[in-house]
Computed example of a mutant assay.
Amino acid sequence: MTTTQNETLSREANLGGLAAGAGYMFWGLSVIFYRQLAHVVPFEILAHRTLWSILLITALIFGLRRSTHLRELLSDRRKLATLALSALFLASNWGIFIWAINSGRILETSLGYFINPLVSVLAGVVLLSERLSRPQAAAIALAAAAVGWFTFSLGFLPWIALFLAATFAAYGYLRKITRVDALSGLLIEVLVMSPFAIAYLAYASAHGGTGFAKDGWLTDALLVATGPMTTLPLVLFTYGAQRVRLTTLGLLQYLVPTMSFVIAIWVYGEPLGHGQMVTFGLIWIGLAIFTMDAWRKERELRRAATMTAR
């Protein structure tokens, strides 16, 4: 490989890292964004998020000349059926996420997205017959202990965290087994959600009205902005994911729950009691073990690939 090619790859990797990091930061800051809509019913926020996303994703698909991918997808009934199911998990994940933020339970959403990588590994064992390494088993055991401690010390199951982790893991599994272009796949998913979004807005309009065109220009602008807040991070993430190593991407994903954790405590003053501190501590130790194991495996794979190339 020439020096010029190495420099090009290095520049692409740097741009990819910046893009993926920016995407994750968008997702992390979405906590503050959706909190500004706390006066709007979560179902209405979800409905607007769905409909405005359709407009923006469609514009991006044709603007970026990805319509070929969309046409191919529309002719594949099996993939369309799988995306209809993934849309169910995505909509429920979005809905509970928005409700939790506007109910002042941001720490639980943070816990859910910290747990998510471990739940995804567990889903791989159950659904894809993948084998757990000892470090992975230890990390999952620590996550189970964290949930158990949370339930024992605070007197209730962290259902928000578990629901978000489980639905996103299920969504990730379905998207993993369905090879589709990211934008085209998301467009199909929001199109599946759209009849329910339209039906809800029509019902709300006939029974007391909605927040849109009623609660002021700022509310209207924020509801319209739910489209870009949904789509732009995905575009940045997709660009970055194609250019950085898997380990780097795995580390960057912790930006989202970390930012949510900091925002919950320092911006919105959510209490962090002893039980929650122990819970997060166990999760972080588990994630450290999990990440180190993933880094070791990728290093071994790269070393083996280098030896094979020789």
Results as ranks from 00 to 15, higher is better:
V235W: 04
W284Y: 08
A225N: 06
N14F: 15
H69M: 03
H69K: 07
L18W: 09
L282F: 02
V180G: 10
L164N: 08
F89W: 00
W159D: 04
T4Y: 04
L157A: 11
A19Y: 04
T3Q: 09
L127N: 08
N102K: 09
F97I: 01
A146V: 09
T109R: 08
A91S: 13
M292Q: 09
G124K: 10
Q253K: 00
A221V: 12
L236F: 14
I106G: 03
G286D: 02
G172Q: 01
V41D: 13
A202T: 12
L73H: 11
T210C: 01
V125H: 00
E189L: 01
F89C: 06
G104Y: 05
S103Y: 06
K214I: 00
A141I: 03
V147Y: 06
L55M: 13
L272W: 04
A87E: 05
Y200D: 01
T3I: 15
T247C: 10
V121A: 00
L132F: 11
V126R: 10
K214T: 13
R303I: 14
P228W: 02
M277C: 12
V121K: 02
V41T: 08
T151S: 14
M193I: 10
L122A: 15
S133A: 14
R35N: 15
A213P: 00
R49L: 06
A100L: 01
T50Q: 02
L122W: 04
G250E: 03
V224I: 15
R296K: 12
G185F: 06
L249K: 04
L142A: 13
I160T: 00
S86C: 02
T219P: 03
L183F: 09
W94Y: 02
W217F: 11
A22Y: 09
A170N: 10
V31L: 03
F62H: 01
L107C: 07
S133E: 10
L46G: 02
T226P: 00
Q136L: 02
K297H: 14
S67R: 07
L223G: 06
A225W: 06
H69Y: 14
R243E: 08
L232W: 11
G227E: 04
L51Q: 05
V224L: 13
L37Q: 04
L142S: 03
K176E: 04
E7D: 13
A241W: 04
W159Y: 12
V121C: 06
L191G: 05
L128E: 15
P257C: 07
T4N: 12
L122N: 14
L223S: 00
M259T: 15
L9W: 11
K79H: 12
L223C: 04
E12F: 12
G16Q: 07
P271N: 01
N93Q: 13
F163A: 10
A294Q: 12
R245W: 01
H274M: 11
V278S: 02
T238E: 09
R245C: 01
I57C: 08
A199D: 09
V192G: 11
Y239L: 15
F26G: 06
T167C: 05
L282E: 00
R179T: 12
A19F: 11
L111R: 00
